[in-house]
Design a protein around this nucleic acid. Sequence first.
DNA 1: TGGAATATGTCAGCTGGATTACACCGCAAG
DNA 2: CTTGCGGTGTAATCCAGCTGACATATTCCA
Lengths: 232, 232
Amino acid sequence: MGMQNKRILVVEDEAPIRDMLRFALERADFRISLAGDVPEARLRIAESRPDLILLDWMMPGVSGIEFTRELKTGPMTKDIPIIMVTARAEEEDTVRGLNVGCDDYISKPFSFPELTARIQAVLRRTLPGGEEEQLAVAGLQVDAASQRVTAKGEPVRLGPTEYRLLHFFVSHPERVYTREQVLDRVWGQNVYVEERTVDVHIRRLRKALAPHGYDAMIQTVRGTGYRFSEKV
Amino acid sequence: MGMQNKRILVVEDEAPIRDMLRFALERADFRISLAGDVPEARLRIAESRPDLILLDWMMPGVSGIEFTRELKTGPMTKDIPIIMVTARAEEEDTVRGLNVGCDDYISKPFSFPELTARIQAVLRRTLPGGEEEQLAVAGLQVDAASQRVTAKGEPVRLGPTEYRLLHFFVSHPERVYTREQVLDRVWGQNVYVEERTVDVHIRRLRKALAPHGYDAMIQTVRGTGYRFSEKV
DNA sequence: TGGAATATGTCAGCTGGATTACACCGCAAG
DNA sequence: CTTGCGGTGTAATCCAGCTGACATATTCCA
């Protein structure tokens, strides 16, 4: 299922540790992004929202506290759980960090089983689809929390795959995707299904949206793939 | 802020460690009660309800596990978060294997920053809760004080687990939860139960609600989990 | 205290909706 | 007109969730 491997953003200034973490976490079946400092971390988050952030507390430049506060304040990022990584005996930072809103804490040196256990525990506590992700385009509303779609208030009945497909399109509008790209993003990377299967689900999605007049937003780009667009 | 000044009950048979903990935790601005064994701990709890219990699991007499179970069963004490203190990391796994409902673990030797951090984290996530409420959705009334449920006045017969399940759903409507999340929130954080068990209790809950016509509010979201919703 | 009633968790087989592949059709572009 | 791409209906397959039964734990009450 495409549900698994969560994205984890590792923010750590020391390259060797970063690589070690990447290795260990990839083995534990997570998808990893890396950032060496806070500005780079901001970039990575903007690219795609991670499900969890592993944040080294002691870094040159912007401190972990400031960055945590920044993240916990931003409406898009405030629900991303943060685990802070500190060296031992930094009591001050630890207490302050937890007050700022870190979700857990782990101190170097730590064992990988412990790290993955903490990550799993934190992920288990958080809710699917982030807290209040509310996508809406021209009266078409996709509510991630309840996994429901409404068109001008009217509920739209969708199967799981159609829901994921629509969710993907609504969050990536005005851009053409090939069938292969759609399969990658909606079905998951290591799944082999016929490309034409996308057609079938596109059709079903259009069919479900048609009574509400939204089917025209799923547009065919002949020779390439599909595009979600408000414009006709 | 409000996090400090919380009452912590330390249950630990070795006096030196007890004193050390008291010193460290008082410096971290907690109010501390001490108990050298389980009977004494019962007394302290009766005196005044602590906000958190730090419990050594290797003690003469009643073991930490038994005591945890006792606390988690009692209606007055079941909401007090418990952090279990174990001698070694391996024992953590042993303890974890048993179905004890404690909220976190820490293994000796630990640093004080780590201890306070864990305490903060546990308090943070268990902070909201414990109050009695009167929940009602569309004629379905859940009375927390008496643990009774009525549907349009008619009493609904529910087992304890079904009651907690319904209470959880009614207080978190319009949102999908995975089985894992339901287990975490309804059964407790470190209780290991098969995910399929959720299905069974969902079914029992639906069965109990069916005669009153409320079973449709417990909705299956295929591929994800369940949702409680007023809407069809 | 002992036995009945109730509650809980696990399992395995079942079932129907969801997913997928495939074959055929229609139409747009060149 | 022809070519090939995308649309559509259908049928096979699959799998998530449903269900009933059972074993065990807990509570209740005589």
